[in-house]
């Protein structure tokens, strides 16, 4: 009995710790700017004030569109490439694959500050400077290690006998992929797409250095500037934070199972 009580005490304290910030965000976003004072921080708004959301929505809608555009294209591209790479590394190991693979994986751990300067020079030189396409390229490339890793581990579970059976039926490299491997990949794709979507949507460093024209800004940059600006009226950043968090939050709530799988895959073997 004591154990039970202890157990639920822990759970409820932890829930409080995790949800208090959410409560504060929501009530602040719903208060009139003038009603937001430090000593009434925790109180419910006296008047429900929705205008902050309207304002944040108008300010953020174009940035959200940028983020969606960028995230969807980069996610799909890196997922497709990752699937092909994973297929090769799991089933068609070429000599040296065991050396190449860890070299690829290293790319997902590097601090991007160590490549930032040559990176933006390179993006400028290939003519993608300042545009969303440059950012897409960067996200696709730096997404390759994790997507390759997830698909490689996923395809390793497909029995070699199935591949062999495909070969006996006369299918080659591409035939086996399209007829046997790809149809089995749906859960793998879901995991990878959710993971990449979350990562790219939430990313900030590349977004702030590579795309700086405000009409192309992704939503994280817009939020950082809104909240980091002067004379912060906290209702607006809070409403903005909610909007910026919404897509990834929805994905997480609706597809949480797959999200956790991606999470575990991120630690190489899980």
């Amino acid at each position: 009995m004591m154990g039970r009580i202890f157990q639920y005490t822990v759970l409820f304290t932890a829930t409080l710790f995790f949800l208090l910030p959410v409560y504060l965000v929501v009530v602040t976003a719903l208060k009139e700017p003038a009603a937001i004072t430090l000593d009434t921080t925790w109180q419910l708004p006296q008047v429900w004030y929705w205008a902050s959301f309207v304002e944040a929505w108008t300010a953020f809608l174009p940035k959200m569109q940028n983020s969606f555009f960028l995230t969807i294209i980069a996610t799909l591209l890196s997922a497709i490439l990752g699937s092909l790479n994973g297929y090769v590394l799991a089933k068609w190991k070429f000599p040296g694959a065991n050396i190449v693979f860890p070299l690829m994986l290293f790319g997902m751990f590097i601090p991007y500050q160590a490549v930032l300067i040559p990176l933006f020079q390179f993006v400028r030189e290939i003519g993608l400077g300042g545009s969303l396409w440059g950012l897409i390229l960067v996200h696709v490339v730096y997404g390759l290690p994790i997507t390759t890793l997830i698909f490689r581990n996923y395809y390793a579970e497909i029995p070699d006998e199935m591949i062999e059976a495909g070969r006996i039926d006369g299918a080659g490299f591409f035939g086996i992929y399209s007829r046997i491997v790809f149809p089995l990949s749906v859960p793998g794709f879901v995991v990878v797409i959710i993971w990449q979507f979350t990562q790219i949507w939430n990313e900030f460093l590349f977004a702030v250095t590579l795309v700086s024209s405000p009409d192309q800004q992704p939503v994280t940059v817009a939020l950082a500037q809104l909240a980091g600006g002067e004379a912060v009226q906290w209702n607006l950043p809070m409403a903005g934070a909610l909007l910026a968090a919404l897509p990834t939050l929805l994905v997480y709530i609706l597809l949480g199972r797959y999200f956790i799988r991606g999470l575990l895959a991120g630690s190489v073997k899980g």
Binding site: P21, T220, L223, V251, Y252, F259, L263
Partner: peptide, 15 residues
């Protein structure tokens, strides 16, 4: 307990 993982560090930082 897991939902903050899906947020951007920028969102967390702002909050």
């Amino acid at each position: 307990f897991l939902f903050p993982m899906s947020l951007s560090f920028i969102v967390t930082g702002t909050i």
